[in-house]
């Protein structure tokens, strides 16, 4: 009968997705499942996690397990990892709370929540797994970050600042493991078409489908071994251009 995905025995065998119900997280989980990986999905909404797990199982035939985690309860992280059935070969964080920038400007708790969900939480989790991976001397850590972290702008700087922190954390980890078997991947998806109805306001040439993001992540983590991935390579250019605009000019731009 038809071909099943190839997967050599030396490849990593399990992927943990934190934020397994996010559009990008579940697309990644499915991509790895199709390649024969066992999937661990973590999140705090049991019902939606189960729905995603069934979807992935039905599509790929892969084994999927569910793990309860509230990304804002950092004190539970150590136990969360200890209770996993296996130490995964690859860990991907794709939880998020883009939040409402406007609200974050005046609401302290809300602003803090955005920073924690986008920086503190993924950084602590990836840091804990980094320790476990060091002991095992293998593993891939993947942080889904954002181009919003490349340069702060008025539209979303609270979220952007958190993502900038995550970018720095990931590049630091990568530097730390530069000469080892452990790899760190930073994902900057750019615009992603998420949600059920197409968001027509997004320019097509800048916008990726979650499936495309997942494919780039898979390539970067498994086959092509890249450190930083953009789902659409044009974002690499856009980011480079944005980075060189002098601050005196940048501050007056509407972004």
């Amino acid at each position: 009968m038809a071909h099943l995905p190839e997967n050599s025995p030396t490849d990593p065998q399990s992927l943990l997705v934190i934020g397994g119900t996010s559009d990008i997280g579940r697309a990644c989980a499915l991509r790895f499942a199709e390649a024969g990986y066992t999937i661990l999905l973590a999140g705090n909404d049991a019902e939606s996690l189960a729905r995603e797990a069934d979807d992935i199982k039905a599509r790929s035939g892969a084994a999927v397990s569910l793990h309860s985690l509230d990304i804002l309860k950092t004190e539970t992280f150590t136990d969360f990892i200890a209770q996993l059935p296996v130490l995964p070969d690859i860990v991907l964080t794709a939880e998020e709370c883009t939040g409402d920038q406007h609200k974050a400007e005046s609401d302290l708790d809300y602003s803090s929540m955005i920073m924690r969900a986008n920086f503190e939480s993924p950084a602590l989790l990836l840091g804990l797994f980094a320790e476990k991976f060091t002991a095992r001397n293998s593993g891939v850590l993947i942080g889904v970050s954002s181009v919003a972290g490349d340069r702060g702008c008025a539209r979303n700087y609270v979220y952007g600042a958190a993502k900038a922190g995550l970018n720095a954390f990931l590049s630091g980890l990568r530097n730390r493991f530069g000469n080892s078997e452990i790899r760190v991947v930073t994902v900057k998806p750019g615009f992603v078409r998420t949600g059920p109805i197409e968001n027509v306001s997004l320019p097509r040439f800048l916008t990726a489908e979650p499936r495309q993001v997942a494919q780039s992540v898979y390539r970067a983590a498994v086959t092509h071994r890249r450190d930083v991935v953009y789902a659409k390579s044009i974002w690499c250019l856009v980011s480079a251009i944005i980075a060189v605009i002098p601050e005196s000019l940048f501050k007056r731009m509407h972004l």
Binding site: R51, E52, D54, D55, K57, A58, R59, G61, G195, P196, I197
Partner: peptide
Amino acid sequence: MLGLNRFGAF
């Protein structure tokens, strides 16, 4: 109904 696009079981 396009948001209800998950597979359930095979």
